[in-house]
Write a protein that binds this DNA or RNA. Structure first.
Lengths: 200, 200
DNA sequence: CAGCATTGTTGGCGGCGCCTACATTGGCTG
DNA sequence: CAGCCAATGTAGGCGCCGCCAACAATGCTG
């Protein structure tokens, strides 16, 4: 178990996981510019080249960070639907609150997640993780459409603006572009707006 | 006039402007990670420390870049309303197309613009430039509201979701998260969605 | 035209990412 | 269970970066 290999053995035990954990802390506390492989290594008490055994370069670590971010986000959004009645208004409200909450709690990570996507050759696993959560929104809208709670039309057309609004609001909120007094209230407004836009 | 001081005199003439211009080219062509003061200096044929005479540090150059971006964006959005009838549907369509177009043409710059804002102590000029264009959207909605084309309610409440949707869609489009085949058509869909959300 | 603020140059410091060569370890196999 | 080998960590070095200080050329202004 040796939680604290203070008596540091030559091998760390799980350096890869430790790097990711510490990297995310640093990202959250000091921003992406302060992320350096060498400093991470120092923090963890290993040599400056040790990280290269687990991530071929810095981008690989960032990709891994982004991937875990997408996975956690998908989990959060999925969980947001637990116990929510099959009514699009409540479902949308839950998912929007969950997404904005996640964005607030993981602002720098979310930035990272979205910037990685620009890269033409991101790993398949990452790309898959990227899309998993958008599938959730798509399914939500599709089901509601089947129940007649959402206007007709191709799924991409009904879900796309929902997605855009959701994402845009979260981004604005995280960027601090919104007068803070409307932070919570603004959410209600945005939810109502989305519902108006999709109802039959 | 000497357009090309090939016979380089000791002083450059307008190094500051040249740095900004070249920096934006590099940003567009090779991404933000490839921006280095030293390389800019090399490109312009000056010494590696010359840029420091015009920008106290790298962030100052990025701020200036972002500020000019906001100013140009405000100009583009303002121009998008020229000759557009006083009808909210046409006005929204014009401004959305202009914003998404600008975002497409200046993806990396837009990223920069939005990330600078997170900084608590950005220059006043930058902050002002930041808000100028959102004022444009606000005024648009406010005027239409006065004409009875937009539902009632506090301005922040009617304009906020418009803003969020607009921004979110542009961000998604730029990120390449949208199936390319719906790029242009998606715009129509989003515009219709916005109009549904704000009508009386 | 003398002096001085502006602008540019040179050199150097520490930090970074990445590379290569070497060291230690633990697990697997004969 | 001995020995070997793949995995993991270390040491050092290279060229880049941002930033700083000291010095040099320029041109504006009194």
């Amino acid at each position: 178990m040796s939680m604290h290999p203070r008596t540091r053995s030559y091998h760390h035990g799980d350096l890869r996981a430790a790097l990711l954990t510490r990297a995310e802390e640093t990202l959250r506390e000091k921003g992406p510019a302060a992320l350096s492989l060498r400093e991470l290594a120092r923090d963890l008490g290993v040599s400056h080249a040790a990280p290269s055994r687990h991530f071929k370069d810095k981008q690989a670590l960032l990709d891994a960070l982004a991937q875990s971010g997408f996975e956690r986000m998908a989990a959060v959004l999925g969980a947001s639907q637990d116990g929510v009645p099959e009514k699009i208004s409540e479902q949308v409200e839950a998912v929007v609150r969950a997404y904005v909450g996640f964005a607030r709690d993981n602002a720098a990570l979310l930035d990272l997640m979205y910037s990685v996507k620009h890269d033409p050759e991101a790993s398949d696993a990452l790309l898959e993780a990227t899309q998993r959560w958008s599938d959730l929104v798509l399914r939500l809208v599709a089901d509601a459409q089947a129940r007649g709670e959402v206007r007709e039309g191709p799924l991409e057309h009904t879900a796309l603006p929902v997605f855009a609004t959701l994402h845009g609001y979260a981004d604005l909120a995280v960027s601090g572009m919104l007068p803070p007094e409307m932070d919570e209230h603004g959410l209600d407004v945005v939810i109502a707006f989305i519902l108006r836009g999709i109802r039959p």
